[in-house]
Simulated scan of single mutants.
Amino acid sequence: MSNSKIDISVVIPLFNEDESLPELVEWNCRVMEAHNFSFEIILIDDGSTDRSWEVIEELKKQTPQLRGIKFRRNYGKSAALNVGFEAAQGNVVITMDADLQDSPDEIPLLYSRIMDEKYDLISGWKKKRHDPFTKTLPTKLFNSATRRMSGIHNLHDFNCGLKAYRRDVIKNIEVYGEMHRYIPVLAKWAGFKKIDEQVVEHYPRKYGTTKFGLSRFINGFLDLLSILFVGKFSKRPMHFFGSMGVLSFFTGTVISIWLIGEKLYDISMGVKFRNATDQPLFFIALVAIVVGFQLFLTGFVAELVSRNSSERNNYQIEREV
């Protein structure tokens, strides 16, 4: 781990949270100063349409530890976190939401568990939530599915915004799409195995309304499938597509040989035979052969271009302070 002069970087993505920012920054500064931490607060304005950026500029004048990054448009929380991770210089990186539902008072214990107990990642667990049923039920379902599919069985809340990371972790993972929900999974696939959770306080929203709609659940499920595929097969996609392709091609070939053999047998026995195209098995075999060939080619192409996109995390930043 890098011996940075900054103990803690607090990375906070935000979208239209101008009312909460002054209190949030003051709360973080109060906690840091009380524990003599050297720190920085990085606010990433994800294309807000309210006064969020103006507030950040005003806060910067009063708080030298504050850094602000503004996107030209709304890219999403994952994009904001990825840029924040790139900018962070602290030995321990804390993420939290900007809506004051996460408590900066949790930071000292999170920091201690990373530095003293040598964990790579500590994920908050909002054991008692102050959210509507329409938000908590889908979250529970996603958490259950993620535990089963990822093999990380000791986390109850993958999507909690309050997390602590060893600096090496955030410098070795890439967050995109809706992947912010599955950062512990990303960390595990990157080789960081010391992952645990901590029960944290969850406060009711004080200002504004939630910025997430129902579409995030569909996107989240698709991204879960994506991350599990990428984690297992990003370096060897031929193993996935190729094996299915070979199986499909082999099945189609065996059926074709069997149909040909049946036809030749009928001819040798002087039995009137049907045309091969009259049998459903002929079309099944044909489809299996074609699909198998296509899957094999897909695996070959994927092997060539695997995770080489240079534009995946290219975001247009308008301003920085």
Results as ranks from 00 to 15, higher is better:
268 S>P: 04
264 L>W: 10
184 P>C: 09
250 F>P: 04
236 R>N: 14
271 V>P: 01
191 G>D: 02
221 F>S: 00
241 F>E: 03
211 K>D: 02
288 A>S: 09
287 V>R: 07
261 G>W: 14
291 V>Q: 06
243 S>H: 00
275 N>G: 10
224 L>F: 11
219 N>Y: 04
231 G>F: 07
172 N>W: 07
280 P>R: 12
175 V>C: 04
278 D>K: 02
281 L>Q: 04
183 I>T: 06
219 N>P: 06
240 F>A: 09
259 L>Q: 09
222 L>W: 10
193 K>T: 00
234 S>T: 05
183 I>L: 02
261 G>D: 13
251 T>Q: 14
274 R>I: 05
215 S>H: 07
244 M>S: 01
188 K>T: 08
258 W>D: 07
293 F>R: 01
189 W>V: 08
263 K>D: 04
197 E>Q: 15
270 G>P: 09
173 I>N: 08
202 H>N: 09
244 M>H: 09
229 F>E: 04
277 T>E: 01
178 E>L: 06
283 F>R: 04
212 F>Q: 08
264 L>V: 10
219 N>C: 05
233 F>W: 12
254 V>T: 14
190 A>G: 15
176 Y>G: 07
171 K>W: 06
236 R>A: 12
262 E>V: 06
245 G>V: 06
191 G>L: 01
239 H>R: 14
285 A>S: 05
292 G>C: 12
198 Q>H: 10
223 D>L: 05
210 T>P: 00
225 L>T: 02
191 G>Q: 10
230 V>H: 15
261 G>I: 11
281 L>Y: 02
243 S>I: 02
235 K>S: 15
237 P>D: 03
177 G>V: 01
229 F>V: 01
271 V>K: 08
262 E>Y: 11
205 R>T: 15
205 R>V: 15
211 K>R: 14
279 Q>V: 03
270 G>A: 12
236 R>K: 15
219 N>D: 00
251 T>H: 15
242 G>H: 13
219 N>I: 02
287 V>C: 04
234 S>Q: 11
209 T>G: 02
226 S>K: 09
214 L>K: 06
187 A>W: 10
248 S>V: 02
235 K>M: 15
204 P>Y: 08
212 F>R: 01
227 I>V: 13
241 F>P: 00
197 E>W: 14
261 G>E: 14
274 R>N: 10
204 P>S: 14
215 S>V: 05
281 L>I: 00
279 Q>F: 10
